[in-house]
Design a protein around this nucleic acid. Structure first.
Lengths: 222, 222
DNA sequence: GTCTATACGCAGATAGAC
DNA sequence: GTCTATCTGCGTATAGAC
């Protein structure tokens, strides 16, 4: 955290209705995700948090700092679990199902995070660096190589055993994440193109959760 | 087009260096795609077009109108070709390869469009309606059902022939588009997570273009 | 810590000369 | 058609009272 909360240096708050700083952060989360950093307004965040907008600057120095805090929170919640699941020592066939269910369940609860992340990363290259520190929070540049090495080894073993075609761990990972994340990131586009209403979209995702593991594993077969 | 250019009602332009309206539109395209509608500045567009920023309001009424024009252009360039390819009468195995190559080649030349589209659609629900009119420009609500019906029929035939597993045309389409588009939309995220520089990313995409058709077709096998 | 009031700059938009 | 000059409102940020 580059932006240190001032409250943490002071006496405990009047203990009204939940930590004010936390309320601001949660409201900021909702507004930034909804509008994007450029489209968000500090006033809207203040209103959503039920506090005066001057307080946003008291707890966080600026809009940019608040946006950074929100982005980091989102990145930290989204990436490490996937990296952990991808890098686990479970058999690769099981891992595929685990990752798919983990991702789809997680994104079903936070359906707007992928589009928010993609938009932020696209419009502000600086965010990529912040993403790296969030994703690799354990030890900065060792998580990723370890995960890739594990996948590479598991794939090589399966290939030797004749149960899988050769594929690089990078293509493997991107294929898996594409199939899980894109339907959420591009939801408005897909529902328009396919003519799905909300209920139909939810059924579509449920069906996907059930079918995707077998679909993906078939694609890996020799 | 809701916003009619004023130039079209007047005498031909002084014929300087390419139609001014066109120069503005192209500059706007670059800036809106780069910054997003909310983050874009009319001044930056004017500078990029090499014209006075008052001219933007002369040719297009407002920033919102200009943003709409750009979005429509992008949507029209991106969606109809895919829908056409998906709905063609080519055998479905060939069609898979055609769509993949069409998409990856197209997106290689316009790598930032998916992230732009996803961001716009996410932050402004109104865009979904404009997308519909762009995607289904031929005859408003008949393209999509025809495409889906064609796919459904072809899949059913292949299933009867024993060369394919059952899959809904919706899941089929989303799987295909996910694998093609997501690597471009989430490029900054993926390059960070996988540790790819620009050259490595380009090799990654080239490899993908070659391997994806077989990968996808294997997933469809019984 | 939280409020009110206000400063300040910026961006969208228009008026009007050329 | 294209420019300069200007208006206006909004959004971030701060000052200062409580």
């Amino acid at each position: 955290m580059t932006v240190k909360s001032r409250r943490s240096r002071e006496a405990p708050p009047p203990a009204a209705d939940g930590d004010t700083e936390q309320r601001i952060l949660e409201a900021a989360h909702r507004v930034f995700v909804r509008r994007g950093t450029a489209g968000a307004r500090m006033q809207e965040i203040a209103a959503e948090a039920g506090v005066n907008h001057a307080l946003l600057h008291y707890y966080f120095r600026s809009k940019a700092a608040l946006a950074r805090a929100v982005f980091q929170t989102v990145a930290r919640r989204l990436l490490p679990p996937v990296m952990a699941a991808l890098g686990s020592d479970a058999p690769i066939e099981e891992k595929v199902e685990q990752v798919i269910h983990l991702e789809i369940d997680h994104l079903s609860q936070h359906p707007f995070l992928p589009a928010y992340l993609i938009g932020e990363l696209h419009h502000d290259p600086q965010r990529a660096r912040e993403l790296a520190t969030a994703a690799l929070q354990a030890d900065p540049a060792q998580v990723r190589p370890r995960v890739m090495a594990t996948l590479r080894r598991q794939i090589a073993e399966a290939v030797r055993a004749g149960t899988m075609r050769p594929i690089t761990p990078e293509q493997f990972t991107v294929n898996l994440l594409s199939l899980c994340i894109f339907p959420f990131a591009a939801r408005p586009m897909l529902t328009t193109m396919l003519g799905l209403d909300q209920k139909a979209y939810e059924r579509f995702i449920a069906q996907r959760r059930a079918e995707l593991p077998a679909f993906f594993l078939r694609a890996l077969r020799p």
